[in-house]
Structure formats: C-alpha cells, structure tokens
C-alpha cells in the first residue's frame, strides 16, 4: 500500500482517466508492491472522497468492498451476531459522517475504517463486560483454540495467506498476546493475567508482535 501515490488525491474533482497512471518510483532492493493492492487502496480513497461529497452510491460500493472485513472483525471481537450487526451499522454511519475527515496522507482507508470498527467493538465488549463479568476461565481454555481458529478455516486467498504467514513468523507468545488483545478485546492487564506474565512483558510482546507482523507484511504507512 503505497500512500504516496494517493497523497495528492485531494483535488479529485476531475473524472478518473480511463487507465490509471500509478507508476511507482523504482524502489531499489525491494520487490514492487503488488499492483492490485495499490489499485484497490486507491479505489477506496476515491470512494470515500465521493462519499464525503454525499454520493451514497460510492458509499454503497465502499460498504460492499469492506463490510466482510469490518463485520468479520466486529463479530470476532464481540462474538454476538446481534451486537455485531448493531455495532457494524454504527461504525458505517460514523464512517459516512467522518468521511471528509479521512486524510490519505495519514494512512489507508482500510486502516482508518478498521481502527474505528475495532475501537467501537472493544468499547462495546468492555461496556457489556462491566455488567456481566467475563468468564476468564473460559477465555483461558479457549485461547489455544482461538488462535487455531484464526489460523485455520479461513478463506485461502493470497491476502489471507500473506497475513497467515506473517502471523506464523511470530513467536508463540507474541502471537498469543496479540491475538488476545486484538481479537479477544482484552486489555493488556487482562492479557497479562490470562497468560500469567508480568504486564511489562505482555506490553512488549504485543508491540513486538505488531513489529514482526509489520515487517513480514512490508506494510508502508
């Protein structure tokens, strides 16, 4: 995802040319990022920009292209179809409302949307949890299975394969800490309790996990 390509997109009032001129500057020593992913990222910027001007059809397409990820993430964190549909709807309404405030120089549309969705899902988990204390024993029992479920039984697309490999490159403890925090919706203190590790260790493992994954995926911010 090379954001430089799209950084100047702000003036996108002109209709898109028939083909895109996304010539990448040659990057020495690095394989060029896949053209498909860049084009996809750029297309999402186009859609969110049009949505910010009130184009509902663009927003509908944005929904179609991203809803499986956004809904999937929310379900994964919340584990409740009912809550997830509700939160997903709130997230998309918020994306629509905030669409003009997306800034492509700060990151991809998908990261922007995912951040919002994840945050909202975690907020919901915590507001629910504070009322009906979560069963930590259950959580512990299912840690391993969770990690496996994230690994297996997912659609075998190239994208997924890349991320799976990236996760596979982490140490078990990094992967576990990251999975519990990101997909489990636990705070770092809760993760520390669950894994019976000092908080400082957990903090470092989560960060190291993200560093390892970032490097494995070659993500450019």
């Amino acid at each position: 995802m090379n954001m430089n390509i799209s950084a100047g997109f702000g003036s996108g009032d002109t209709p898109r040319a028939g083909h895109r001129t996304t010539q990448l500057p040659s990057q020495t020593g690095q394989p060029p990022p896949s053209r498909g992913r860049d084009a996809e990222a750029e297309h999402l910027i186009d859609l969110i920009t049009r949505a910010s001007r009130g184009h509902e059809d663009a927003f509908a397409e944005l929904y179609d292209l991203t809803s499986a990820r956004i809904y999937g993430l929310i379900v994964r964190v919340l584990r409740s179809a009912e809550h997830s549909a509700e939160v997903t709807q709130e997230v998309y309404v918020e994306i629509w409302r905030q669409s003009a405030r997306y800034d492509s120089s700060k990151g991809s549309v998908l990261a922007w949307m995912t951040t919002m969705a994840h945050r909202r899902a975690v907020d919901r988990v915590r507001s629910v949890t504070s009322e009906t204390a979560r069963d930590e024993k259950y959580a512990l029992r299912t840690v391993d299975r969770d990690v496996d479920q994230v690994w297996d039984g997912v659609e075998q697309t190239l994208d997924v394969e890349r991320v799976r490999k990236g996760m596979g490159s982490l140490t078990a403890i990094q992967r576990e800490a990251l999975t519990l925090a990101y997909f489990g919706g636990y705070t770092q203190s809760q993760v520390a309790q669950l894994l019976k590790l000092p908080l400082g260790t957990v903090k470092t493992r989560i960060r190291d996990g993200l560093i390892g994954l970032r490097d494995a995926l070659g993500v450019e911010a």
Binding site: S67, Y71, M113
Partner: peptide, 25 residues
C-alpha cells in the same frame, strides 16, 4: 504503521454480514 498492520489482520476473520444490514446502513 501498526494501524496498517492491524487492518491487515481483519483479512483473517472476514465474514459476510447479514444482507439486511446493507439496506439498514
């Protein structure tokens, strides 16, 4: 950078939303 990385994680858990959700949104 980490936000981009985390966004990629969502590809692991994709799930089709209920069809009604689209029209509701």
């Amino acid at each position: 950078e980490f936000s981009e990385t985390a966004a990629e994680l969502s590809s692991l858990v994709q799930a089709p939303p209920p069809p009604m959700l689209r029209s509701a949104v």
